[in-house]
Design a protein around this nucleic acid. Structure first.
Lengths: 152, 152
DNA sequence: TCATTATTGACAGTATACTGATGATCAGTG
DNA sequence: CACTGATCATCAGTATACTGTCAATAATGA
């Protein structure tokens, strides 16, 4: 019988759990109540103001159904605003509030720290190699998920 | 600003999504309705009959709260049985049913196929290296998650 | 033995992720 | 312009994951 430790799926799941836990503890220690998912969405909206939800989902590889809830919570926290688009009445344009900008700037050091902490068992070279392999595997499997990356 | 593609956390999350999607489609194609999480739990119960839920959670690095629902669903599908332990009246001993054994055996080829498919962009050597790096990072971060691995 | 502490399983509540469906709207074609 | 098909956002439902809490029970130490 194949051991869990020889299953890529199991190992990926475990490191993901650790990554999320590290993110939460770093963010909380810095005084912010933001999930990894919410952070990524906020950062993407910051880079692409006025973006609609489907495009946002594609940029960060989220399911379009998931993004609804994430955007809801960001709006509820006053970090972003959602307004109907004038060009397409189906779409909602997402923009950051000043509060959102302040939060994004403030939390960034904690996010950077978390990224290092979650691979603290690896050397810098090993981390680079891990990221290279992850990128390569993701590129080949991108279309297998319901939430593929869609670069604009 | 740091790109998503340079963030280990983002890359890990994406590959995890792909891994789960691949597992589902392979399992479904083989005629089974079992999630990756349910499969791992079933396999662990098969290896360690009579195990209690906390020990099971430790073996596969699940949160003890999560395991309750997983075990519920496996029991509801008739794949496992839950009975009060005679040694410890708090604990529930988990055992497989014949149906569970049949399911586990039947689904195993699909699981193996899924493990290969989710890293189909990598060569065999690269897959080995990816698993090595994942194991090393996980070992260093094990205690950072609420659901660490607890080998017996 | 008795009081304190720890452990097991469960529950409520929140946040991803997904499947599948729906209403509103847009774009392209005849 | 009317029709068809695609797209945007949302919803209902299911399954992880987590935080924090609780009752029942076990284990430990004074």
């Amino acid at each position: 019988m194949r051991d869990n430790n020889d299953m890529p799926g199991h190992l990926i799941r475990r490191l993901q759990q650790i990554a999320v836990a590290v993110f939460h503890s770093e963010a909380e220690a810095a005084g912010y109540d933001l999930t990894p998912v919410q952070y990524a969405a906020l950062a993407a909206i910051s880079t692409s103001p006025g973006i609609d939800q489907v495009t946002l989902a594609g940029l960060i590889a989220y399911d379009r159904t998931t993004i609804t809830g994430v955007v809801d919570r960001l709006a509820q926290k006053g970090l972003i605003e959602r307004q109907a688009s004038s060009r397409d009445r189906r779409a909602r344009e997402l923009t950051m509030t000043p509060e959102g900008k302040k939060t994004l700037e403030g939390i960034t050091p904690a996010v950077t720290a978390a990224q290092q902490l979650m691979v603290r068992g690896l050397t810098d070279d090993e981390t680079e190699e891990l990221m290279r392999l992850l990128r390569k595997a993701i590129a080949a499997g991108n279309e297998l998920s319901r939430a593929p990356l869609r670069q604009v």
